[in-house]
Structures are given as C-alpha cells and as structure tokens.
C-alpha cells in the first residue's frame, strides 16, 4: 500500500530524512516513533503529497508519485485521510460542517452528506456537538472532529501525526481504540507519535526514527 525506496528529503541543504526504505501492507497499522524533529512528520507529508522527495521513489496504492500529474493530486489525496498535528479545523464552521467539507469536496449531495456525517459523528461520540464551533470544544473533542473528517470519505489510508499530543491518558486511550476500530474495517493506518503508551502491547510494527533515519523496527 505504501512503499518508500531510498527516499531523502532536504530542507535548506539539511536532510530531514535520509535514504529511507520501508513498506506498509494493505490493512496494516504501523507506528513511527522518535524524538521531535526526527523526521516523522516529513515522512507523513511525503505520503499525503504535501512535500516532494528529493531522492528515491514513493509508491502509494499503485500510484508512483514521481509520475503523478499535479492535477491528479486531489484524487489521490481523497484516498488518504489525515489527522493533522495542528488539527486544521475551520474556526468559522461548526463540527458538522468541518466534517462535511471532506464530502462536499468529493461532490456529494447535501441529502447524502447529512446522514453520513451524523453516522461518523456518532462513531467518534460527538453527535451531540454537531452544532458547536471548534473553539467551544476540548482538545480531545477537537481531535475526534479531525479524526471524523479524516475517515468520513472512507479513505484506504489513514495518517495521524501526534494524535494524542496534548491529551490526558484516558482521552488518549479512547483515541487509540478509535484507530484500532478504523483499522479493523480494513483501512491502512500510519501513526506518528512519541507517546509509548500508544503502541505498547499493540502487537503492531513500530519504526524507530532518529535524525532522519530508520534506526530500528520492533513489535509494540
């Protein structure tokens, strides 16, 4: 589903990731861990095409990114749900509209959107907050809105960048359960985190990243 081959990315002549090679199978759930600035976010950005690798090749769901036309990028992105580290919620829209926007972009009709969004909000336990605005939500609730927006379009890949960054342990455990449920439905999940609790005893592959290199792989 995701294949990196000798990928390097520079920022102002400094390599953020160096010569990285790894693969993620369809339906797999993996973790990337390491200190801040290790290159985890850069890896995710390359997967959702926010950054281009300077060297090496990347294949996402049979799409060779080096051969991808710019006009095709939106269509590939619709297959990738992203839980952004900075949430990227739209402050002037309520929870419902923040989630629905992912479907409106896909050209879905309002009548179809209504039921589907409410279904997803129920799944993340936010149905009662559909009319609230992001500023009125707690960090955990905002995180769940972002997850709802990422999965509402039924992507084949879900990426999460530090999804439990500022959350208390109970809320973090709830978010982890949610990712497992999403993965159980067949979605490939990639989580970048420095929170060990998130991957401990999961039985999933964990890639240890440091200074832009994969320095180890273990089972969590």
């Amino acid at each position: 589903m995701i294949h990196f081959s000798n990928v390097t990315k520079f920022y102002e002549r400094q390599a953020a990731i160096k010569n990285i090679t790894f693969s993620v199978e369809k339906g797999e759930m993996i973790f990337m861990t390491g200190p801040s600035g290790a290159g985890k976010s850069t890896l995710l950005k390359i997967i959702y095409l926010s950054e281009k690798p300077d060297e090496g090749s990347v294949t996402i769901a049979e799409w060779d990114l080096s051969k991808l036309k710019e006009s095709s990028i939106p269509f590939l992105r619709r297959n990738i749900g992203v839980v952004f580290q900075d949430f990227r919620l739209l402050d002037n829209r309520n929870v419902f509209d923040n989630v629905a926007i992912a479907l409106r972009i896909r050209g879905m009709l309002d009548s179809e959107i209504q039921d589907w969004v409410m279904e997803i909000l129920k799944m993340v336990n936010l149905r009662h907050k559909a009319d609230s605005f992001p500023q009125a939500l707690s960090g955990g609730e905002q995180q769940r809105v972002v997850i709802a927006r990422a999965i509402v379009g039924e992507p084949t890949i879900l990426l999460a960048d530090e999804p439990t960054g500022n959350l208390d342990p109970d809320t973090a455990a709830g978010i982890t359960r949610l990712f497992k449920e999403i993965n159980a439905r067949g979605t490939t999940v990639v989580i970048a985190t420095h929170n060990r609790e998130l991957y401990r005893n999961t039985g999933r592959r964990v890639f240890r990243i440091d200074s832009g290199n994969i320095v180890g792989e273990e089972i969590g």
Binding site: S71, P74, F75, R77, R78, V82, R88, I101, I105, G153
Partner: peptide
C-alpha cells in the same frame, strides 16, 4: 488562505 490550504489537503480540485 488557511482554509484553502486545508481544502487542498482534503482533496479539493482547482475547480472547487
């Protein structure tokens, strides 16, 4: 601008 960047990352086309 911020909103548009988010739209792009969610898969919005140029037309949208």
């Amino acid at each position: 601008k911020e909103e548009i960047e988010t739209f792009k990352l969610l898969g919005a086309t140029r037309g949208f």
